[in-house]
Design a protein around this nucleic acid. Structure first.
Length: 299
DNA sequence: ATGGTTTTTACTGCGTC
DNA sequence: GACGCGGTAAAAACCAT
């Protein structure tokens, strides 16, 4: 379509959604709109957040100072090709080193900028609070300081930072959901996340399935009674060691299904599976165990 | 790399509306 | 006939070694 203003690749700028376009080559996000409408803060569920968010920072392209990338020739010649006197040669050498310093500093900053831009973009799309967004930015900066980016993509680390921040802030967003708004795939995010959290020594508390309940329940339109019952199911089942090794989303989904059976507010396996992003098979397995746990507990 | 565990995929049969 | 439900076997994904 258009030529990218950043890397100059022709025809590489493609629409991402209604309000912004991005370059295929360098990932630069071109905003159509100079005003940042920001995300809709009333997004209470992931689906809401995705449909309502207006993603993209008010990037002002005019501020990218391209003048700094001027190249200074290594030859000690003037414009006519004549050799420079030694006095001027020294001067030129000094200029060259300074110019080089400015250029590398600038490129590093630009890379950080685009990374943080990306963090913001994904955070908006996921509808996470501002504090978590900043946490992700902090994690990314720390990763940068510890030199963890080498050998990994900027995109991957940015995605991992977002996911990690959600984890530490107990904002229930699964790896799948992060992957859905990221440019890199799930596996890469998982790998990078493990790597970053290990290197940075992030304390990673296992995800409590209860965290997913409010979101799933509201998406299914369940009564608070059933939601509370599901929480009770999770508690009882967890107390019997049924959680270890199992996926938290599947566990939560099954608890909702189980609670539906118990309260009479029935939900189909298929529906719960859809909102939780798991299969009905998993729900059956977990639910069977949970029912046994509840039965044994009550009787 | 390997093996053990969990999850998914794909397919089955059964009962009900 | 479509749908919900339960089960199974094999593949895939995951994790620790």
């Amino acid at each position: 379509m258009d030529e990218c203003p950043e890397c100059g690749a022709a025809g590489s700028v493609v629409p991402v959604d209604g309000t912004e376009r991005a370059c295929d080559e360098c990932g630069l996000v071109v905003s159509e709109d100079a005003i940042d409408h920001g995300p809709e803060w009333r997004a209470h569920s992931f689906e809401d957040g995705r449909s309502k968010s207006r993603v993209g920072a008010p990037e002002n392209l005019a501020m990218h100072d391209k003048g700094l990338t001027t190249h200074i020739d290594w030859r000690d010649r003037d414009a006519y090709g004549n050799a420079l006197p030694s006095r001027k040669r020294r001067r030129m050498r000094r200029l060259r080193t300074w110019q080089e310093r400015a250029r590398t500093k600038d490129s590093r900053e630009r890379s950080l900028r685009s990374a943080l831009n990306e963090v913001n973009r994904m955070s908006s799309a996921l509808g996470v609070p501002q504090s978590t967004r900043e946490g992700a930015a902090i994690i990314y900066r720390r990763a940068l300081e510890e030199d963890l980016i080498r050998g990994h993509t900027v995109e991957g680390v940015a995605s991992a930072a977002v996911y990690a921040s959600c984890r530490t802030d107990a904002i229930p967003r699964s790896l799948e959901e992060v992957a859905a708004v990221s440019r890199v795939d799930r596996t890469e995010i998982a790998r990078t996340y493990r790597y970053v959290s290990r290197e940075l020594g992030l304390e990673l508390a296992p995800v409590d399935p209860v965290q997913y309940l409010p979101r799933f329940a509201s998406e299914l339109g369940l009564s608070p009674a059933t939601e509370a019952k599901a929480a009770a199911v999770i508690e009882a089942a967890t107390a019997q060691g049924l959680l270890s090794g199992r996926s938290p989303t599947g566990f939560a989904a099954a608890a909702i299904y189980t609670a539906g059976q118990l309260t009479g507010e029935r939900v189909s396996q298929r529906e719960v599976a859809a909102v939780a992003g798991v299969t009905t098979v998993t729900i059956r397995h977990r639910s069977k165990e949970q029912l046994a746990a509840m039965g044994g507990d009550a009787a």
